[in-house]
Write a protein that binds this DNA or RNA. Structure first.
Lengths: 192, 192
DNA sequence: CCAATTTCTTAAACTACATTATTTTTTTAC
DNA sequence: GTAAAAAAATAATGTAGTTTAAGAAATTGG
């Protein structure tokens, strides 16, 4: 079953009883998206938190002048949403799109709220997910403040080698906060 | 009681029963620190998560050349720690210091782990705390990637006016990721 | 399979911010 | 209250990264 992936993901942090598994699976809605699908568009209410079974997704912010900043990539086994807008059920600041054909499990806000009540272990699960996300973002802030673009690029390659292969340099540049032209220069220097 | 502050903080997200309150308070260790105390030093194991009853704290990263990047400020009613190192009980990457005399409640890792078991509602509480921290850090990443130093400075003033009054410009500059000299220029331009 | 579009590279001119140094102002300590 | 230390301002010079533009390479769609 493809749903093995999400169950293994859950099992990293909590153990579900046999009878809890079908309930949990019943609130997930599986959907297949072709390449370049828009999963969430800025301004829309973000109704779901999303688990990537297969494929690659990108969340990005587009500023008033159209400049894009990639906030995160998500590959198989990752959770992704516009957390702020999902939690508060407000218009999204981010866009989320597929970079290739992807199989996504959607979990609705109201179903998650019920889940916390019916299976409180999920409070623990998402506490750990949020904790890890916080630690990741904070590390990224530290690196953005203290490292050069070149250092950030090499850390990105080391940390997410499989993502680096899937996405364009333009997208990597927008994740690093530099222009594609400057990334191209960094890459050219490397070979010297 | 000064401990009212932490109980009100908890009550924002969960309701404790009468009998749970004394247990929770019993695992908190209150300590008073003079100005410029070091609460956590990089390289040390980070043993506690800390609640600020009164005063102001600063968490910062110091790179190999001694350059400081301020990761967060914490004033009354905030939780602060080096989360990565607290969770994994590994040597700290961050330093935490008081910027004025401060009254801190310390919560030890092992007591927190017990607390999650004895009062599982705290899973919910810290899930929400972590969620908010994640959202905050992600917003900061977006702003670091897409806004100029000047824009970031004005957002900081709007968002944390009381912090802005308590801390030096050098510290604000290191939070924004710029030099104090450049912040001084930004401030001078403002008056034109 | 070819045309069209997108991506990547190169390079010159430019800008936001850093560095260094000096002076002035504010804070701290006895 | 005064000396010493730290913080802030100003200014000249330097640099990491941007902008603009144009050509080469790779991908995509029909």
């Amino acid at each position: 079953m493809t749903q093995d992936i999400v169950l293994k993901n859950i099992a990293k942090h909590i153990s579900l009883d046999e009878n809890e598994i079908p309930y949990f699976l019943s609130i997930l809605k599986e959907k297949k998206y072709p390449k370049k699908s828009v999963i969430l568009k800025e301004g829309e209410i973000c109704k779901t938190i999303n688990f990537v079974q297969s494929g690659t997704l990108r969340a990005f912010y587009r500023d008033s002048q159209g400049k894009e900043s990639t906030i995160m990539f998500a590959v198989s086994d990752w959770w992704i949403t516009d957390m702020s807008c999902f939690i508060n059920q407000q218009p999204a600041m981010l866009n989320i799109e597929t970079l290739e054909e992807s199989l996504i499990l959607h979990l609705q806000k109201e179903d998650l709220d019920d889940l916390y009540i019916k299976i409180p272990k999920f409070e623990r699960f998402f506490r750990i997910i949020m904790q890890n996300a916080y630690i990741r973002e904070q590390l990224r802030v530290i690196q953005n403040l203290s490292l050069s673009a070149e250092q950030r690029y090499h850390i990105f390659l080391d940390k997410y080698p499989q993502v680096a292969k899937q996405v364009t340099q333009k997208q990597i540049a927008s994740y690093l906060g530099i222009t594609p032209e400057f990334l191209s220069m960094i890459r050219a220097n490397k070979n010297k």
